[in-house]
Amino acid sequence: MDFLNAFVALSNFVLIPAIAYGSQLALGALGVTLIYGILRFSNFAHGDTMAFGTMVAILFTWWFQSMGISLGPLPTALLAIPFGIAGAAALLLLTDRVVYRFYRAQKAKPVILVIVSMGVMFIYNGLTRVVLGPDDQRFADGERFLIGALDFRRMTGLEEGLAIKSTQAITLVTAIIVVALLFWFLTYTRTGKSMRAYSDNEDLALLSGINPERVVMVTWLIVAALATIAGVLYGLDKSYKPFTYFQLLLPVFASAIVGGLGSPLGAIAGGFIIAFSEVGIVYAWKRVVAHMVPEAWEPEGLLQLLSTDYKFAVSFVILVIVLLFRPTGLFRGKAV
């Protein structure tokens, strides 16, 4: 029995990857939840907004790399994030101008806006693939590991290794900073308050003289920032492929709904719940268990609940369970 080794194995294969993945999902879900709370529809184009913002960031990263600009041990992509945000913001504001504004003026029902956002999703998706192609793109550089598995073993003398990728550390730190800024913004600034007011009661916000177009514009800008940051972090941590981002839509939505659509706090909690479930259920627990039980009891199977191919089924199952037993989500968002 060796709890220390078991814990290290658990951290290495479950905790750390899930925390990084959870942060990425949380940032994505925050964007979805803000749009739902303020513009009142589920934005299916969010995954592809992430893909587009990331694409712009990648193009700038390559340009910086070709000019020899770098951040040393940190990935150059961090420098390109502001440009990615600007690109995504331009695209979102343009879309709002030519598409969503029309439906807002019509006071279209949310379900119509959802379908509209699906159309927008296909356009974004095509746009990204036309510019960058459908293939995997590599843009990560800088130091790959904060702590390597070998170093860790040498340092501690443990049997199990623990590797922390620098992208995982960057993801967590960035996510904490972004979330703190967002909550500060929503709670204390006048703009944030008018956004919350608009989300609470649109009619009354208008009667208080709040300009709806301005609230909508600010929302899109914030969403552009959240989507691009989430997208770049995910791309750095795993890999960038436009279609992967489209698939990311499901866990992102699951996170937002599990936490309660329209509730920023819920989006964060939801992101981590989905991430931990996905990683935990497709992980082969044999290694961790082997350290915990006497040798004779060592399991023969892999102790993997589901094969990795079924990763997305996990989000679905959690989604269904939450919708059945608590339709407004864990943090009581707006009714779906």
Partner: peptide, 29 residues
């Protein structure tokens, strides 16, 4: 009656008038 349910009475009143100078993204920071 309409109100902003998640805000205090004081905050409800302070939402009026809209278009205060803190309401642009730039000024907020």
């Amino acid at each position: 009656a309409h109100e902003f349910p998640s805000m205090t009475c004081r905050e409800n009143l302070m939402m009026v008038p809209g278009s205060q100078s803190g309401e642009t993204l730039w000024n907020a920071w």
